[in-house]
Write a protein that binds this DNA or RNA. Structure first.
Lengths: 194, 194
DNA sequence: CCTTTAAGATGACCCCGGTCATTTTGAAAT
DNA sequence: ATTTCAAAATGACCGGGGTCATCTTAAAGG
């Protein structure tokens, strides 16, 4: 009964994504124009919007895919055994997320999670990332008075904060990784008893 | 020599802001249209952009003003003596920031701080907020192994995280203040010695 | 094969933010 | 008063995202 989707549909969709990917590779995410995508894919503009709710939905897909590849690599890593190793492990993703201001904006908009009906790719990757980091934390020498899950959410919060300040005119004295290191030491290492 | 600014200029700018404020009050921030603002103010469209770099710059001003009023009230409060009192003190601002999805988006975009040349209103209010909270923390029964400044930055990070998850389809089981409370307990209260 | 029909594709059109060559205006200099 | 000129205002225009009535096509039923 769910056999309504035609072969043609998938082909068109694939061509759109292929064209978009090529254009992003060539000129970056922020410079992507729907007009150019449909022209390169050889379809009409309306067709684009039959496949994607809006331009952001395509961005969500493309960026989500890239993030997923980062996470694939992250999963191969051994659990970090110190905060600085953790920062090291987080950096590939952080670097992608800050490669363009526009990319960071889209991610913020979609991590804080899209429309309520449909859950986007980026929101899904945030979940996946949270689980990976939680597993690292559970295996490492970090505080144990709260759950790895909560600690992992905190790592995300501090990562976002570090990235936001990285783009901020008021606070670009410290480097992104130094700042993240400072935050995560305070968050993950139990202070000496007092 | 710096006497180039005419009276007319200030009057026009005031009319634009007045019109925008009225329209926001009537229909919300997300529904604001530049076209309507200039019509109500009785000026041409081009004039708007002679006074504001873009629509976001006006939003930055309007939202920044509202945040400043929240902070004025926050400054009158006594320093909170527990995490739950702190959350209580933070909530008025948090509630405004989440009053519309659009408002939260603008704030994220501008707290992460606008163009590098010009520092926006919102970015300035984030700084002010950080100082107010740092003073509260310094006066309260919170951990002392790291600076109030750093702790305050963390409070902002967790506030943003809580608001983002509030808008997220995947994570709206817990209420915003409950979530913030959980984060801040873990952040501000030193875990028992171990 | 031909008919039927719903999924898919189309492109003219709209909306709205932002630009810029041109015109108007205020006030300083003569 | 008149001239001058830079600041301010103007509105036709553009770019780009998004819509929708209409046309095309794939494939199921006869």
């Amino acid at each position: 009964m769910t056999k309504a989707v035609q072969k043609r549909t998938l082909a068109t969709r694939a061509r759109l994504i292929e064209a978009a990917t090529a254009l992003v590779t060539e000129k970056g995410y922020g410079a992507l124009r729907v007009e150019e995508v449909v022209q390169m894919a050889g379809v009409a503009k309306g067709t684009f919007f039959a496949h994607f709710a809006d331009k952001d939905a395509l961005m969500d897909l493309l960026i989500g895919q890239r993030i997923d590849r980062c996470l694939d690599e992250a999963e191969l890593l051994a659990a970090p055994s110190s905060v600085s190793e953790l920062v090291e492990a987080l950096m590939p993703l952080v670097r992608f997320m800050t490669c363009e201001r526009y990319v960071f904006d889209v991610i913020l908009r979609y991590s804080g999670a899209a429309a309520v009906e449909e859950i986007g790719h980026i929101a899904t990757t945030f979940d996946r990332h949270e689980r990976i980091v939680a597993a690292w934390i559970a295996a490492g020498p970090f505080r144990r008075d709260v759950s790895p899950h909560l600690l992992s959410e905190g790592v995300q919060a501090f990562s976002v904060q570090s990235m936001a300040l990285h783009f901020c005119a008021l606070h670009n004295t410290q480097s992104l990784d130094d700042r993240l290191l400072t935050y995560l030491r305070a968050w993950l290492i139990p202070p000496p008893a007092g």
